[in-house]
Computed example of a mutant assay.
Amino acid sequence: MDMTTRWLTPGEQRAWRAYLAATLLVEDAIDRQLQQDAGMPHLYYSILANLSEVPEQQLRMTDLAERTKITRSRLTYAVTRLEKDGLVRRENCRWDKRGSVAVLTDEGRAVLERSAPGHVETVRNSLFAHLSAEQVEQLEAICTGVARALEADGTRPAADEVPWRRRSTPPSSCS
């Protein structure tokens, strides 16, 4: 055993395990609902939702990968599947032909609109129904604080080391 390692305290260990159990169970509930209602996993729904929230309902693939926090290769695979289903289409980037843009189709918007009520209900029932209003505020504060700290303290990789930000082309690229 390494004597320089700062092991988790018993309380930290319990909190860590509770966090893991809760996040895995919530994610499983969401995935099951989305598979049943929309025939897709949560990641695919998240891609559609992110596209629906931006002007012109389109994003550069690199920006979409960053928003969903997945690698570009994983995003490419997911978007290819969504394209086959007619929910998304890829277009060349207007300002750089080497890159591509993911665009939400009318069919994709319709699937999102049909599955959103069940998704929201599942999120509410699997997470928020078990929390008081004060706990919801605490959860937001905790998650926001952790995210900000990881982005600011150097434990998060540099921009060019983050998988969804890696580029094989110059930064002006759309890919």
Rank of each mutant, 00 (worst) to 15 (best):
M1R: 02
D2R: 06
R6S: 09
W7V: 06
W7T: 03
W7S: 05
T9D: 02
T9K: 11
P10Q: 04
G11A: 14
R14E: 14
A15M: 15
A18T: 13
Y19C: 10
Y19A: 13
A21G: 05
A21E: 14
E27P: 00
E27N: 12
I30E: 09
I30N: 04
D31G: 09
D31C: 14
R32Y: 09
Q33M: 15
L34C: 12
L34E: 08
Q35L: 15
Q35V: 15
Q36P: 01
Q36E: 15
D37R: 14
A38K: 14
G39Y: 07
M40C: 10
P41Q: 13
L43T: 12
Y45I: 08
Y45N: 07
S46C: 08
L48F: 07
A49F: 11
A49W: 14
N50L: 10
N50W: 11
N50D: 11
L51K: 03
E53V: 09
E56C: 12
E56L: 15
L59C: 07
R60H: 13
L64P: 05
A65F: 08
A65I: 06
A65R: 08
E66W: 10
R67N: 11
R67K: 13
K69W: 09
I70N: 08
R72L: 04
R72A: 02
R72E: 06
S73R: 09
L75D: 05
L75Y: 00
T76V: 05
Y77L: 09
Y77A: 11
V79L: 02
T80D: 12
R81L: 11
K84A: 15
K84W: 04
K84P: 00
D85G: 05
R89Y: 06
E91S: 11
R94Q: 09
W95I: 08
S100Q: 15
S100L: 04
A102N: 06
V103G: 10
L104I: 10
L104H: 12
T105G: 04
E107T: 09
G108V: 05
G108N: 05
V111E: 03
V111A: 10
L112M: 14
L112I: 13
L112P: 10
S115G: 08
S115P: 02
P117N: 07
H119W: 15
H119M: 14
V120E: 13
V120S: 09
E121Y: 00
T122C: 11
R124S: 05
S126L: 04
L127K: 00
L127S: 02
F128P: 00
A129K: 05
A129T: 06
S132D: 00
A133T: 13
L139T: 00
A141R: 10
I142C: 01
I142H: 06
C143M: 09
V146A: 08
A147M: 10
A147W: 11
A149L: 12
L150Y: 08
L150T: 02
A152F: 02
G154T: 06
T155F: 12
R156C: 15
A158N: 12
D160C: 01
D160L: 08
E161P: 01
P163M: 06
W164K: 01
R166I: 15
R167D: 03
R167K: 11
T169D: 09
P170E: 12
P170I: 00
P171Q: 03
S172K: 10
S173H: 04
C174F: 07
S175Y: 14
